[in-house]
Computed example of a mutant assay.
Amino acid sequence: MLVKWIRCGVLDQDGFDRGQRGWAALRNRPGFHGQGGGWSRSQPGVAHLFAFWDGQRSYDAFMAGPHDELASAQTGTYEMLAARTFAHRLDVKVGFEPRFSDADLLRVALCKVRPDRVGHFVQMQERVWNPAMAGSPGMLRGVFAEGADGDFLVLSAWDSATEHGKYREGAVARLSQRADLDADVLSVAGDVVDVVPEWTV
């Protein structure tokens, strides 16, 4: 599965929102599995979107075909757009599906991993982070995916900000130490996203 992460700096939030609802046309595209997103909690005017495809071929066909027509509805509503793709490596909780209808909040983390530590980082994701997140009340599902140049994406969906806050306060520092995260990564950047239900496809 291919995961696409789009981050937009939005100028016209109402116009962007109206345009985003037009992406419902994706439902009929071969190889498309789902899309959702919302607004950043920490950065006003920043939108995050996550799309899921069965592979590079179907994604490339969409980009070469109807993508530009759909995207034209949002022309002029944003000043910055950054898009990256990642290849699925692991589910965070068994049986990941790209569903957002039951999620209140998304947590996205981008980890830049040292080249000589990729194997250890992936192993710790599987043995330390995934079980801890899967066992956290309120964590619905998630995905761990690999991009280019040692970049890894961790996306998790939560049923409430309260439950995510409990996990973050109670577990993250302890798990980071146990997984020796500082030795694995050059940087970790991320955001917390309030889901907009109407953007779910």
Rank of each mutant, 00 (worst) to 15 (best):
Y78K: 04
K166R: 13
H33I: 13
N130Q: 07
A171W: 03
Y78P: 09
V118N: 05
G65I: 13
R89M: 14
D12A: 07
F62Y: 14
L11Q: 11
L106Y: 03
T200K: 11
V108K: 01
G31H: 10
H88F: 02
Q125I: 01
R168W: 02
A25S: 06
V3F: 01
Q20I: 10
L106F: 04
W53L: 05
A109T: 07
V46E: 08
D182A: 15
M80Q: 13
K166N: 10
E97H: 07
V122T: 09
A51F: 10
A157T: 00
A73P: 05
F50G: 03
T200S: 15
A87C: 10
A173F: 08
D68I: 11
D182P: 10
G170D: 11
E198W: 05
K4V: 13
Q125N: 13
K4Y: 05
L110R: 14
D102E: 11
A47C: 03
A83T: 08
D159T: 03
L49F: 04
A157E: 01
R89D: 10
H48N: 02
L175R: 06
Q56V: 13
L49D: 04
Q177F: 07
L11K: 10
R7F: 05
G36N: 04
G95M: 10
V196Q: 00
D104S: 06
V188F: 06
G147P: 05
E79P: 03
C8S: 06
V113A: 06
R41P: 05
A73Q: 13
A61S: 12
R27H: 13
A109P: 09
L70D: 04
G45R: 05
T162F: 08
Q123A: 15
P66Q: 14
K112S: 14
A183Y: 06
M1G: 09
Q20K: 07
Q123G: 13
P131I: 01
G65S: 15
D184S: 14
A161D: 04
R99G: 12
S136H: 02
G190T: 01
P115E: 15
S176E: 15
A24H: 11
T85N: 12
R174H: 04
A51Q: 14
S42W: 02
G65C: 14
P137T: 07
W5M: 11
V192R: 09
L11W: 03
V128K: 15
H67L: 12
D116R: 15
H33T: 09
V193T: 01
R168D: 07
D17N: 10
L26D: 08
V192E: 11
G9F: 06
V108S: 01
V92M: 04
F121P: 08
G37S: 06
C111L: 09
L90A: 05
V192Q: 11
Q35T: 04
T75L: 15
S136E: 02
F96L: 06
E146W: 04
F121G: 06
G170Y: 03
G190S: 03
R7N: 09
C8A: 09
E97S: 08
A47R: 00
F86E: 05
G190I: 02
D191T: 02
R168G: 05
A24I: 12
S40E: 00
M80A: 13
L81N: 07
V154A: 01
S160R: 03
V143F: 03
A103Q: 02
V193G: 00
G38P: 05
G76Q: 11
V122H: 03
G36I: 02
V188A: 10
G150E: 14
